[in-house]
């Protein structure tokens, strides 16, 4: 059995996207600002990666208002969770495989 790197999800090639998915896998919902603080990246950077994940239908956006301030929450879709899980499995298998050789 040989697992190649091609099996790794292209959407998670970028580190920030993988980190976003990790957060949304561990939490039901997460808001934009908390995500920004946690990952320590800029608004624009985070927004573009979120957009990319949204386009893949890995996450969905919930917009609401807290008083007058807009509050944007993100949630992983079933498709996203599945993709994240299989990405982790592939990573794990790659490690095992490299240990054997």
């Amino acid at each position: 059995m040989n697992i190649s790197f091609d099996k790794l999800d292209k959407a998670f090639e970028n580190r920030v996207r993988l980190q976003i998915m990790s957060v949304l896998a561990a939490n039901e919902r997460y808001d934009f600002n908390s995500l920004k603080d946690l990952l320590g990246i800029t608004d624009g950077n985070l927004a573009s990666h979120l957009k990319a994940l949204e386009k893949e239908e890995y996450i969905v956006v919930h917009k609401s208002f807290l008083g007058r301030k807009p509050n944007t929450n993100y949630e992983a879709t079933d498709k996203g969770k599945k993709a994240f899980k299989s990405h982790l499995n592939t990573l794990e298998q790659l490690i095992k495989q490299q240990k054997l050789t």
């Binding site: 980190q19 957060v23 896998a25 561990a26 946690l38 990573l91 790659l94 490690i95 240990k99």
Partner: peptide
């Protein structure tokens, strides 16, 4: 990707999941 790099990746995922929820 090297083995250590892969392991770092997994470790960072684990750490971020923990830091985000706990």
């Amino acid at each position: 990707m090297e083995e250590t790099e892969l392991q770092n990746e997994l470790a960072s995922i684990r750490s971020i999941m923990e830091r985000s929820s706990k």
